[in-house]
Design a protein around this nucleic acid. Structure first.
Length: 347
DNA sequence: TTAGGGTTACAG
DNA sequence: CTGTAACCCTAA
C-alpha cells in the first residue's frame, strides 16, 4: 500500500540513458554507484534500472505497434548492445593514414540498397507519422544535457549546445536548430525556462552549482571516453561533420576502417543487424533534420542550419551503408563455416 | 547482482 | 476492460 507507483521522471530517464551509454546495459549497480548518476537515480534501485530498461526494450518484435517499434529504436540508437564501449576504437594500426580514400564511387549505388537493412518487423516505411517520433530524439539529447549538466537553476542555451556538440556532433549553426527545439520543448512542458535557463520539470533539487556563464564544465563522459575521430556505429546518433561544400567527405578513411575492423569480428548476422541499426539511425536523423528544416522555414529561422544537419545525416548514411555492405560481402566471402550466410539483402 | 517471470497499479 | 509501466520474487 505504501507504494503508489513512482513513475520515472525525464530526469531519471536521462540519467539512466547516460549511464547505459557510459557503462553499458546490465551494469546497473555500477551505474547506480557512479557519482555522475547517483543523484538523479537516488531513489532507484539497480532492479528498477533493469526494469525500466526492459520496459523500453520489451516488445522488440512481434508484439507491438509501430509506435513501440519506433520507441525501441529511439533507445537503441543511443544504447550500444555489445561491450565494445571502451575498446571499439583502440586500433593503433589505423592511425592517421587518412589518405581519405573515397568510397564515393560506391556510395550512390549503395544508397539504393539501403532498404535491405530495415527489413525488421516495423520500419519507417510509412510517411504517415515518422516525424513525430524521430524529432523526439533531439529532445532526448537536450534533456540529457540538462540532466547531466546539473546546473542549479538550469542550463542556458549555450551550455546545452556545447554539451551536445561536444558529445555528439558539430554542425554549422547548430544553435539555430537548437533554439527551435528548446522553444518547442518549453512550450510542450518538457522543459521549464527560467531566466534564459532551461531545466527539467521535476528537478527541484539540483545539487551541483556553477557560475551562470562560467566555462562549461567538461562532461565526465567526454573526459573519460572521447574518441574524436571515431564513429561509433551503435552508440552515437551520428557523427556530424562541418559541411561547407557538397563534396566534403563526412568520414575519413580512418573512421571507416575503425568500423570495418569492428565489424570483421562479427558474424554476418550481427553485421546485418548492425547495418540495419546504423541505417535506421541515420534515417531517423535525416527525418529529424528535414523536419527541422521545414520548421525553420516556417519560422523564418535560418534554414541553412537545418539543411546542414540533413546533409550531414545524409552523407553519414551513405557511408555507413557503404561500409556495412562492404563488410557484409567481405565476411560472407571469408566465412564458409557459417552456413546461414543467407544474409539476404533484398534491394 | 542480474535476468526473467509474475503481479499490481494506473491510464485510456 | 485492456494495455502499459512500475514493482516484486526467485533462480542462477
Amino acid at each position: 500500500m505504501g507504494a503508489p507507483k513512482q513513475k520515472w521522471t525525464p530526469e531519471e530517464e536521462a540519467a539512466l540513458r547516460a549511464g547505459i551509454a557510459k557503462h553499458g546495459p546490465g551494469k546497473w549497480k555500477i551505474i547506480l554507484r557512479d557519482p555522475e548518476f547517483s543523484h538523479a537515480l537516488a531513489s532507484r534501485s539497480n532492479v528498477d534500472l533493469k526494469d525500466k530498461y526492459r520496459n523500453v526494450k520489451v516488445m522488440e518484435n512481434g508484439g507491438g505497434s509501430r509506435e513501440r517499434a519506433r520507441l525501441l529504436m529511439k533507445w537503441n540508437q543511443q544504447i550500444p548492445k555489445h561491450d565494445d564501449y571502451q575498446k571499439a576504437s583502440s586500433d593503433p594500426k589505423n592511425d592517421q593514414m587518412a589518405s581519405s580514400t573515397e568510397i564515393g564511387s560506391i556510395k550512390d549505388e549503395i544508397i539504393d540498397a539501403k532498404p535491405l537493412a530495415i527489413s525488421g518487423p516495423e520500419k519507417l516505411a510509412e510517411n504517415s507519422s515518422p516525424l513525430k517520433n524521430s524529432i523526439s530524439r533531439l529532445e532526448d539529447l537536450i534533456l540529457e544535457a540538462v540532466a547531466i549538466l546539473k546546473e542549479r537553476n538550469g542550463s542556458n542555451k549555450s551550455a546545452i549546445a556545447t554539451y551536445i556538440e561536444e558529445k555528439y556532433c558539430r554542425v554549422q549553426k547548430f544553435n539555430k536548430v537548437l533554439s527551435m527545439k528548446l522553444n518547442a520543448l518549453v512550450s510542450s512542458g518538457k522543459l521549464i525556462k527560467v531566466n534564459r535557463k532551461y531545466r527539467l520539470p521535476s528537478s527541484q533539487a539540483l545539487l551541483e552549482e556553477r557560475k551562470p556563464d562560467a566555462p562549461l564544465p567538461p562532461c565526465p563522459i567526454l573526459l573519460e571516453e572521447r574518441k574524436p575521430g571515431v564513429l561509433l556505429l551503435e552508440g552515437r546518433p551520428i557523427e556530424c561533420k562541418k559541411i561547407e561544400e557538397k563534396d566534403v567527405k563526412p568520414l575519413t578513411k580512418f573512421q571507416i576502417d575503425a568500423e570495418l575492423q569492428k565489424m570483421r569480428n562479427m558474424t554476418a548476422e550481427e553485421v546485418a543487424a548492425a547495418a540495419a541499426k546504423a541505417v535506421a539511425e541515420a534515417e531517423a536523423a535525416m527525418a529529424e533534420a528535414e523536419a527541422a528544416a521545414r520548421e525553420a522555414e516556417m519560422a523564418e529561422a535560418d534554414a541553412e542550419a537545418a539543411q546542414a544537419f540533413a546533409e550531414a545525416a545524409r552523407l553519414t548514411l551513405k557511408n555507413l551503408t557503404a561500409s556495412a555492405v562492404g563488410v557484409i560481402s567481405l565476411s560472407l566471402s571469408h566465412t564458409h563455416t557459417h552456413t546461414h550466410s543467407h544474409t539476404h539483402m533484398q534491394t
